[in-house]
């Protein structure tokens, strides 16, 4: 059974086609419903894609992790690779508002350090309150960084990298889906603050959201993605040491 599945669906084409089809379905639903937030294309494609993989797993009685790794991942990795040049591309919106970077660089760096410090402390205590175990708490702390930074740090402070990766992905999905709504609810007005916040909480995808709001927001989100990774590199292991995680 596994061999047959591999023969028919094991090419990268399956993963690429599945990604495109579920995304287009999401896009269609989003437009039909005039932007209902639950039909946000990325969210729809994520749920639908996992559901299809789960269906294949159920109907063939094979572990879903095997299905994901052997059928979807070869194609998914090809699409995923383009996130690398896409991240680099954010240098342009950043460069376009170089005036703001030059003027406010100190405020930018300080707000990311202090803001992350506050977030990490709050995240630590709320996780304890919710009743997460030590390993899960450690996995939560590095999520402000991009996945490539957050996972090894989670490992270093005895967390579970897979949970951290999940957190980083969901951060981005949440910010992309309801970022503007959160900005409205918490009455965030300062474009520099909004940009830095979106970049920190939503990573690269948060920067795309910020860019939709305006050039200042976009450039600030782009710079926060760079600086926050370095800040997380330093602050999170220190904090973990402090609270003996």
């Amino acid at each position: 059974m596994q061999a047959e599945l591999l023969k028919f669906l094991g090419t990268p084409m399956f993963g690429i086609a599945l990604s495109l089809v579920v995304y287009l379905i999401g896009d269609f639903l989003f437009k039909k419903t005039h932007g209902f937030f639950l039909f946000q294309p990325l969210f729809v494609s994520m749920v639908l894609g996992i559901f299809i993989l789960w269906l294949i797993a159920k109907s063939t009685n094979i572990n879903i992790t095997w299905i994901y790794t052997n059928l979807y991942k070869p194609g998914g990795d090809i699409i995923f690779w383009f996130l690398y040049p896409a991240t680099i591309a954010f240098a342009i919106p950043l460069f376009k508002r170089n005036d703001i970077v030059k003027k406010y660089w100190l405020e930018i760096v300080l707000s990311l350090i202090i803001g992350l410090g506050i977030s990490v402390v709050i995240m630590y205590f709320v996780s304890k309150l919710i009743g997460l175990n030590q390993a899960a708490i450690a996995s939560m702390l590095p999520q402000a960084a991009t996945t490539a930074v957050a996972m090894p740090i989670a490992q270093g402070i005895h967390g579970i990298p897979a949970i951290t990766a999940m957190a980083c992905i969901l951060n981005a999905v949440i910010i992309y889906a309801i970022g503007d709504w959160l900005i409205k609810i918490f009455r965030l007005k300062n474009p520099i603050g909004i940009g830095l916040g979106l970049g920190t909480a939503g990573h690269t995808l948060g920067s795309a959201k910020a860019l939709e709001l305006g050039p200042i927001e976009g450039s600030m989100a782009a710079i926060s993605v760079v600086i926050i990774s370095i800040v997380v590199d330093i602050v999170v292991p220190l904090f973990a040491n402090l609270v003996h995680l």
Binding site: G49, I50, Y72, I79, F80, A165
Partner: peptide, 29 residues
């Protein structure tokens, strides 16, 4: 580099789809 950059940033949400579907492997957690 603007043309390619704008294109890549424009399809960023789509580029995130594999990351989202990756969560299928974390269903056990």
């Amino acid at each position: 580099i603007e043309k390619l950059s704008n294109f890549l940033i424009g399809i960023l949400a789509f580029l995130f789809v594999p990351s989202g579907i990756q969560l299928a492997a974390s269903l056990d957690i």
